[in-house]
Computed example of a mutant assay.
Amino acid sequence: MPLTRIKENKTTLAWILLIILALIWGSSFILIKKGVAVYSAPQVGSLRIVLAAVILLPLAIIHLTKVPRSKWGILFICGLLGNLIPSFLFSIAGTKLNSSVSGILNALTPLFTLIIGSLFFRKQISMLKITGILVGFAGCVLLIFMNASGNFQLNNYYALLPVAATICYGLNGNLISRYLAGIKPLHIAALSLCFVGPLAGIYLFSTDIDMDLVLSSEGISALGFISILGIVGTALATIIFNKVIQLSGPLFTSSVTYLIPVVALGWGILDGETLNWIQYVSMLAIILGVYVVNKAK
């Protein structure tokens, strides 16, 4: 097969996988909303991690010996910051916050990755990137502190939880870049999830789960949503994410940041959620800020 044809096929596959990834991750917020409608937020968060860890356990066992023991500690920390803690934060936020708003705030991740890298990991940051950060955070402030009338007030404390989750993601990204650069991304994902999976499992089975509720029609449907969230939204999405990186590199893969809020917004509208004009302006500002940060040299 000619080289140009191979490149075209790789590009097409990369785009297909990127769109699938955006659909999966963009749908995770509405799945959380459906899950916490029946189960408690901590139960949803812990079950999501347990299911993902079980699915990735065979990969973790196979590749465990390929990762030095000296890296296991940092992998555990990455599991906390990149999976366990955000899973709980987004689940708790889902009890009081529109899923579309959570999806929009999730787009702050690249901004916090850059800020944390500059403050604590001595990474250089240009003035253009600083501009992108300021634009993105202006959108974040509008989204959290401006009501529909244009008055400045904290509308919903729960909106701070997705922001805290993106800070965790930003710190996790920098730790991986600094300390796990020589380890394959798939190995990092499988091992870090399986290292924190037992913690989520211990918590999950210590909660008072009403079995009558679990076996009810609402309980079974909610459990189905959470299962999709853990198996597809966490385990499978991780594998797809790493495949896209292999095909087209991290810069192309970062484009998923712009698509996730759109998918989350679409699901929110279909579920009857409404956004005011300030929230739409905020979303555009956040996405614009992320775009400037990713494109700036």
Rank of each mutant, 00 (worst) to 15 (best):
Pro2Glu: 11
Leu3Asn: 10
Arg5Gln: 14
Arg5Phe: 10
Ile6Pro: 00
Lys7Leu: 12
Asn9Ser: 11
Ile16Asn: 01
Ile20Asp: 01
Leu21Tyr: 03
Gly26Ser: 09
Gly26Glu: 11
Ile32Pro: 02
Lys33Glu: 15
Gly35Thr: 08
Val36Pro: 06
Ser40Gly: 11
Ala41Gln: 00
Val44Asp: 04
Gly45Thr: 05
Leu47Trp: 08
Ala53Phe: 01
Val54Glu: 12
Pro58Tyr: 05
Ile61Thr: 05
Leu64Gly: 00
Thr65Gly: 14
Val67Asn: 02
Arg69Lys: 15
Lys71Arg: 06
Lys71Ser: 11
Trp72Phe: 13
Gly73Glu: 03
Ile77His: 04
Leu80Thr: 13
Leu81Glu: 02
Leu81Asn: 02
Ile85Glu: 13
Pro86Gly: 07
Leu89Gln: 04
Phe90Cys: 07
Phe90Arg: 09
Ser91His: 12
Ser91Asp: 00
Ala93Asn: 09
Gly94His: 11
Thr95Asp: 04
Lys96Ile: 13
Ser99Glu: 06
Ser102Trp: 09
Leu105Cys: 09
Thr109Phe: 06
Pro110Ile: 06
Phe112Asp: 02
Phe112Ser: 01
Ile115Asp: 13
Gly117Asn: 01
Ser118Gln: 04
Ser118Glu: 00
Phe120Arg: 12
Phe121Ala: 10
Ile125Glu: 07
Met127Phe: 13
Leu128Arg: 14
Leu128Asn: 10
Ile133Met: 14
Val135Ile: 15
Ala138Phe: 13
Val141Ile: 14
Val141Lys: 09
Phe152Leu: 14
Asn155Gln: 15
Asn155Trp: 08
Tyr157His: 11
Tyr157Asn: 12
Tyr157Trp: 13
Ala159Thr: 10
Ala159Pro: 05
Pro162Tyr: 05
Ala165His: 02
Gly170Ala: 00
Leu171Met: 07
Asn172Thr: 10
Asn172Met: 11
Leu175Ala: 07
Tyr179Lys: 08
Gly182Asp: 05
Pro185Gly: 02
Ala189Met: 03
Ala189Val: 01
Phe195Trp: 04
Phe195Gly: 12
Gly197Lys: 04
Pro198Phe: 09
Ala200Tyr: 12
Gly201Pro: 08
Gly201Ala: 15
Tyr203Glu: 09
Ser206Thr: 11
Ser206Asp: 01
Ser206Trp: 11
Ile209Val: 15
Asp210Arg: 01
Asp212Glu: 14
Ser216Ile: 12
Ser216Gly: 09
Ser217Gly: 12
Gly219Gln: 15
Ile220Ala: 13
Ser221Trp: 14
Leu223Ile: 05
Leu223Asp: 11
Ser227Ala: 15
Ile228Gly: 12
Ile228Trp: 03
Ile231Asp: 02
Val232Phe: 12
Gly233Cys: 08
Thr234Phe: 05
Thr234Gln: 04
Ala235Thr: 00
Ala235Asp: 05
Phe241Ile: 06
Asn242Glu: 07
Asn242Lys: 01
Val244Gln: 01
Ser248Tyr: 12
Pro250Glu: 14
Pro250Val: 08
Thr253Lys: 03
Ser254Val: 10
Ser254Trp: 05
Ser255Cys: 15
Val256Gly: 03
Tyr258Pro: 04
Leu259Arg: 00
Ile260Phe: 00
Ala264Tyr: 02
Leu265Trp: 14
Ile269Pro: 10
Leu270His: 02
Gly272Asp: 12
Gly272Ala: 13
Leu275His: 10
Trp277His: 13
Tyr280Met: 02
Met283Lys: 06
Met283Ser: 01
Ala285Tyr: 02
Ala285Pro: 00
Ile286Met: 06
Ile287Trp: 01
Leu288Gln: 03
Val290Asn: 09
Tyr291Ile: 11
Asn294Asp: 08
Lys295Ser: 11
Lys295Ala: 12
